[in-house]
Simulated assay, not measured.
Amino acid sequence: MTEASEKINLLGLSPTKMEEFFASIGEKKFRAQQMLKWIHQYGEADFEKMTNMGKGLRAKLAEISEIALPEVVYEDFSSDGTRKWVMRMPGGSSIETVYIPEKERGTLCVSSQIGCSLDCSFCSTGKQGFNRDLTVAEIIGQVYVAAMSFHEPGERRERRITNVVMMGMGEPLLNFNNVVDAMNLMMDDNAYGLSKRRVTLSTSGVVPMMDKLGDVTDVSLAVSLHAPNDELRNELVPINKKYPLKELIAATNRYLSKLPDRRKATIEYTMMEGVNDTMEHAEQLAELMKQVPCKINLIPFNPFPNSGYKRPSNNRVYRFRDHLINEGHIVTIRSTRGDDIDAACGQLVGRVADRTRRSAKYIKAVQLDSNQ
């Protein structure tokens, strides 16, 4: 008998790896499609209830594999439809996942790592340091929990999640293989069936991995910019010292050039009072972004204890936005959602007994052009 700790967690197998698993136990490849549907479309984790698989196969699956789901230690649903979960990972650390409903979409923000090694000066996650990468099962498990929160296990799920943004805790490109496998699951028709235009990866600018990403997928791209010049970005986003703006912009354009359509990148710009929110910064950003087909998303800073930064006034944000628009850019401002359940930067996890402080400030950071 295989010990439970040695069992293969089918939750994290990509379509290709699921086929390889069934082939390894002498089963036909079509079993992979059946299993993917049971797990991701019906939310079923009990092999005995998978009625289109024979009794012998179900017994074999129970012996050598499992569907190990994330441990949800806290969940809350806002009056505006926002949903938020805290999930504890093996080892004791936790992450947060947030679902934001909008008129024509439902966006889920997903984490790729516990902590982060990039240490951006304004990010609460970076203050924790880096713990470890999340596995494919831990990444896709966040989507599973959110998707299945709308119905009972065994019922075919509704398509309530239309968009996924890899903008939670961590730098996705530093957990490359697991993130790519998880995104493939998100887009697979037998799993979540999301459009490549509706799955977005956000990076702080790991240039070599941006090029590698363009060779294996064509999901949408967001860039965490936050500063319009190298001097300031070196301070706010330290990876800029290794990959400065000129290289980042070139890599962004290379990625966009590989896409089969005319998608734009989303440029994320967190605004901090007196730091990067002056009209001079607006002028620099407007000029810089003329080099990239993009949409700019302005994110008023959401303060957390000892951050050292403040949120700019609304008037300051609007002036900044108006200048960018006057220069011909598409610009949005992130709106706040889920206040009644602390669905904002670092608010919730401080009330839950764990060592993380998940930032949800990017939840509405991307305005995908899927509806255009």
Rank of each mutant, 00 (worst) to 15 (best):
V292K: 06
G328R: 07
R321Q: 14
L348R: 00
Q291H: 15
G328K: 03
H281K: 13
C345F: 00
K290E: 14
N297D: 11
H329A: 02
M289V: 08
L324D: 04
R316Q: 15
A353Q: 10
H281Y: 10
R337W: 06
G328A: 09
V352L: 06
C294I: 06
G308L: 01
R351L: 13
N315K: 15
M279S: 10
A286M: 08
A282T: 10
G350A: 10
K295G: 13
P293R: 14
V349F: 01
N302G: 03
S307I: 04
S335R: 11
L298P: 11
A353F: 12
A353D: 13
G338C: 09
G346S: 11
I341N: 07
K295L: 12
R319I: 05
I330E: 07
L298H: 08
M279Q: 13
P305D: 01
V317T: 12
E327V: 04
F304G: 01
E283M: 12
E283R: 13
R337C: 00
G346K: 00
N306G: 01
R334P: 07
F304Y: 02
H281T: 04
Q347T: 00
I341G: 04
P300H: 07
S313H: 11
R311C: 09
V317E: 13
G328S: 09
H281V: 07
V349I: 00
Q284R: 14
L288S: 14
R351F: 04
L285G: 04
F320S: 11
R311P: 03
A282P: 13
K290N: 15
P300G: 11
N326M: 09
L324G: 03
C345H: 01
P305R: 00
N315A: 14
L288F: 15
V292A: 05
A343M: 08
Q291M: 15
R311M: 08
A353P: 12
R311L: 03
D340R: 06
H323F: 08
N315D: 15
E280C: 03
K310F: 01
E287A: 13
D342T: 00
R351D: 10
R319A: 14
Q347A: 05
A353R: 07
R334C: 09
D322T: 03
D322R: 05
P312V: 06
V331C: 01
Y309G: 01
V292R: 10
E283Q: 15
D322I: 02
I330W: 08
R321D: 08
I299L: 11
V331Y: 02
H281C: 15
P312N: 07
H323A: 05
E283F: 08
P305C: 01
A343H: 06
H281M: 09
F301K: 00
T332Q: 12
L285Y: 13
V317P: 10
I330D: 14
E283T: 10
R316C: 13
I333N: 14
Q284V: 06
Y318E: 15
E287Q: 14
I333V: 15
N315C: 10
N306C: 02
S313F: 01
K290Y: 03
